[in-house]
Structures are given as structure tokens and as C-alpha cells.
């Protein structure tokens, strides 16, 4: 028996918005410690890694490990039926071919149940290597989304350049060039407004604008985003999911730009 109940059900709705444009289908690995999802996007250009720890759920039970292959378009349709303040429970029998979503209104006056067919997905087992990153940049997630959106008007690529002074985002195209520099912030009232650069070596890498913009669909999950870069390895874009876990996107640098 698997059962995971989340009072803050809106988090699950936001997680779905953050992955549904990148993945058509994915396997949810449910284990005693929590739920993991790891999958390459539809074009195999980026990797999505989602981690939801059992401690983040209000009730979590997983008697034996199960892998639930889900069609994310269908799952997204179902989660759209939940209100933002609904409590969401996912449950499945050990060897079931369906998963049930239960939405409870906060006053328990309305309870909706949706059953969805599971899929057998033959997905590659991928490992994420431990990497020491030369630059780790934390910035407000809304700011990052704005920069990606603004620069996508100029070209298909964004150059991210990190030095000890701060981080520079640039794009160039037919209409001209754009450069946005963010300096490290001094003292800020709210931690989430800070720009923090932790740099061992300066790094400059080029990434696809389209994918960075897709990653920013996770912005509602967290006020801060963390970018980790090293030469010749994929960029990591990480959003925390409340106290429950995180979503990480990995994107290979563009070659030959």
C-alpha cells in the first residue's frame, strides 16, 4: 500500500506545472524515504530530477517500493481539478495498475476521487554524478525568470558569466545585444531578495534560452533559485519545494556558440 497525503496540495499542482512541458510521461519511484522522479526531457536535452521527502508529507506510507509510470498530461488534467487549498492524497495498492488522487476541501465538505491508469515505462536508469561546482549563484527566482524572458527576445542562447563581482547574463541576435549584470547584494531585509555568488573559478557558459525558460515554470515553487556551474558539465537549476524537497533541472552547455 502506498499513500501520501499533502495538506498543502497546491505544491503538487505547482510541481506538475514545473515538469509537464518538459516530460510527456515519467516514473514516480515511491520508496520508504519518499518519492523520486528522474527523467530526460522529451528531446533528451535536459534532465529533470524531483525529490519529495516523506517528512514533508502529513501522512506517508509505503510498504514496499513501487514505480508508478504516469502520463503527465493526464496527471496534469486531474490536478487541475483540485483547488489551491485542497488537501491532496495519492494512493495505490502494491501491484496496482492505477493510482488514485483524492482531493479534500479544507472543511472536508467536498471530497473528490480520481483514478488514473498507470503505464509501463521502459526508462533508462540514469545516475547523477557528484560534482564540485566552480560557481554557485543564488538569486530571486522571479528575477531569473524575468531575465530569461527578456533575453529570449534577442537570441536562442543565453551566456551566463560568473565572476567574483557578480553574474552577467547576455544574449545577441539580429536586433542587437543585451547584457544584464547582477551584483552580489550587501545586506537585504529578506533573504529571498539576495543575490549570492560563491565562486572558486570564474565560469562562462552558453545555454539554450528555450530550456531555461521552461525551467522557470518552477518559479512559483520557491522565491529563490540556485544555479550551479562548472566548465563542460551541465548547469544545475534548483528550486526548493517548501520543506518537502526540491526540483533540479540539468542542462548541457551549448557547444560551438
Amino acid at each position: 500500500m502506498f499513500e501520501a497525503r499533502l495538506v498543502q496540495g497546491s505544491l503538487l499542482k505547482k510541481v506538475m506545472e514545473a515538469i509537464k512541458d518538459l516530460l510527456n510521461e515519467a516514473s514516480f519511484d515511491c520508496a520508504h524515504s519518499g518519492i523520486l522522479l528522474q527523467a530526460m526531457d522529451n528531446s533528451h536535452v535536459s534532465l529533470v530530477s524531483l525529490n519529495l521527502r516523506k517528512e514533508g508529507f502529513d501522512k506517508y506510507r509505503c510498504d514496499r517500493n513501487i514505480v508508478m509510470g504516469m502520463n503527465l498530461t493526464s496527471m496534469s488534467k486531474i490536478l487541475k481539478c483540485a483547488s489551491n487549498d485542497d488537501i491532496i492524497t495519492m494512493k495505490a495498492q502494491d501491484s496496482a495498475d492505477t493510482v488514485t488522487f483524492v482531493f479534500e476541501s479544507p472543511n472536508q465538505e467536498k471530497v473528490s476521487e480520481y483514478e488514473m491508469k498507470l503505464m509501463n515505462l521502459d526508462q533508462d536508469q540514469l545516475g547523477i554524478p557528484e560534482t564540485e561546482y566552480c560557481c554557485i549563484i543564488k538569486l530571486p527566482s522571479g528575477e531569473f525568470a524575468r531575465i530569461c524572458r527578456d533575453l529570449s527576445q534577442f537570441g536562442e542562447s543565453i551566456v551566463i558569466s560568473c565572476t567574483k563581482e557578480g553574474v552577467k547574463f547576455s544574449a545577441a541576435g539580429d536586433i542587437g545585444t543585451a547584457n544584464i549584470k547582477l551584483a552580489q547584494t550587501g545586506t537585504v531585509d529578506k533573504e529571498e531578495d539576495a543575490v549570492i555568488v560563491d565562486m572558486q573559478e570564474p565560469v562562462t557558459l552558453t545555454f539554450s534560452c528555450k530550456y531555461l525558460n521552461m525551467f522557470t515554470k518552477a518559479t512559483p515553487l520557491s522565491p529563490q533559485v540556485c544555479l550551479s556551474m562548472s566548465p563542460d558539465v551541465p548547469l544545475v537549476v534548483e528550486y526548493k519545494i517548501g520543506e518537502i524537497g526540491h526540483i533540479r533541472y540539468y542542462l548541457a552547455p551549448r557547444i560551438g556558440d
Partner: peptide, 14 residues
């Protein structure tokens, strides 16, 4: 696509 290959290699090597 070289970026695809790079990414797949990075995750498969581990």
C-alpha cells in the same frame, strides 16, 4: 545533436 550526447554521456557515466 552534440548537446544531447554530452548530457546522456554525463549521466550514463556515473
Amino acid at each position: 545533436n552534440t548537446e544531447q550526447e554530452e548530457l546522456e554521456e554525463y549521466f550514463k557515466d556515473s
